[in-house]
Design a protein around this nucleic acid. Structure first.
Lengths: 188, 188
DNA sequence: CTTTTATCTTAACCTAAGTTAAGAATTATA
DNA sequence: TATAATTCTTAACTTAGGTTAAGATAAAAG
């Protein structure tokens, strides 16, 4: 967090003390859609997913990779039912900051409100970008964009989840992959 | 704004005094993509659009109808280049609150920060919903949803802009319309 | 009032992606 | 270890939507 706004050494220690370190096994549900988000998370290691259920189907809204914050926004701030769940795709190692400790921290660390505001902005920009690429780009381009930003994604996340993230079916993604590998083969 | 958080009569007057009433002719650009948003707007009358340019094409990100706030988020708060423009689709009558006056207001009206935060949350929820319906619904369903929420939209907004909002071409929307009118005809 | 421009519809053709299904390969589990 | 359950690929078929183009109507602009 100290990357986002400057904190004194003392404040860093205080903030760290307000966090709880937790381990989650693969497939565990950390925050449940429909209930009030219990904490903000900072992911030390592993991969998280933000998912929402719509009818009988589950959609991947986003992936969260190591060294990033995970926030169920605005549920965490407003204490209202959340639109999505947070799940562990792999075994995960996270720092949790509960709502109570966040409020305690805000009183003691003036910059914490600003940090929260900036994280919120990051989340907003993230979905804006995602929405924009959904409208302006083809599924193939969206896939290439994702793989470029996160090359290791193929090893650790199932094709079905990646397809869901991209807004297409697993069959369609498999087709895109084989089309791409044929394109690459042509260049030799 | 007083619908969103309670303000005293005195505060309401003060806040109103910080606003400037302006008239915009149809097609005028109120806030330009790439530059820093100059104000928050409250739309008294008319229809605004949020648009972004991507390459040579223009996409409608959202419509703003009367009695609603319009915010270029997060450009207005962070004073960074905005991702989209705000334009007047029809002649518009708006209240403007500049960044300077917003800062003045925040010092004098304790609840104004909270109002700003809530408006921000509304904007976030808006794009979340839009993203979700983009992924989970067909263009036809998205169109029906839009018309249901804003029946007068057909009279005041061109088919091309509505299509852009839905993420499809004008030809595709025209096709959807004729398909729907045939469906209705069948029921008689 | 006339010409130009924008708006909307319709048709023909094409491609991307959904659906269903079947088979191979990998991973879980009894 | 054997069986069951996922995961991934491929194929066949269908449908929604993109592209191009042409014609009709309506709105701007001269």
């Amino acid at each position: 967090m100290s990357k986002i706004a400057s904190l004194t050494e003392e404040e860093k220690k205080l903030l760290a003390g307000l966090h709880t370190r937790k381990q989650y096994k693969k497939k565990s549900v950390i925050d449940q859609q429909g209930s009030i988000s219990k904490a903000v998370y900072y992911l030390n290691n592993g991969i998280l997913s933000m998912e929402y259920q719509h009818g009988s189907k589950v959609f991947v809204r986003d992936f969260i990779f190591r060294d990033s914050p995970a926030l169920v926004y605005p549920s965490f701030y407003l204490e209202e039912p959340s639109r999505y769940s947070i799940k562990a795709i792999t075994d995960c190692d996270v720092w949790e900051l509960t709502k109570e400790n966040f409020e305690i921290g805000k009183k003691k660390i003036p910059n914490l409100g600003i940090i929260a505001f900036k994280i919120t902005n990051l989340f907003h920009q993230n979905i804006e970008r995602r929405f924009e690429s959904m409208i302006t780009k083809s599924a193939e381009d969206r896939y290439l964009e994702l793989v470029e930003n996160h090359p290791k994604i193929i090893q650790s996340i199932s094709l079905k989840m990646i397809a869901s993230y991209l807004g297409i079916t697993d069959v369609a993604l498999s087709r895109i992959r084989s089309r791409l590998s044929k394109k690459v083969a042509k260049n030799y």
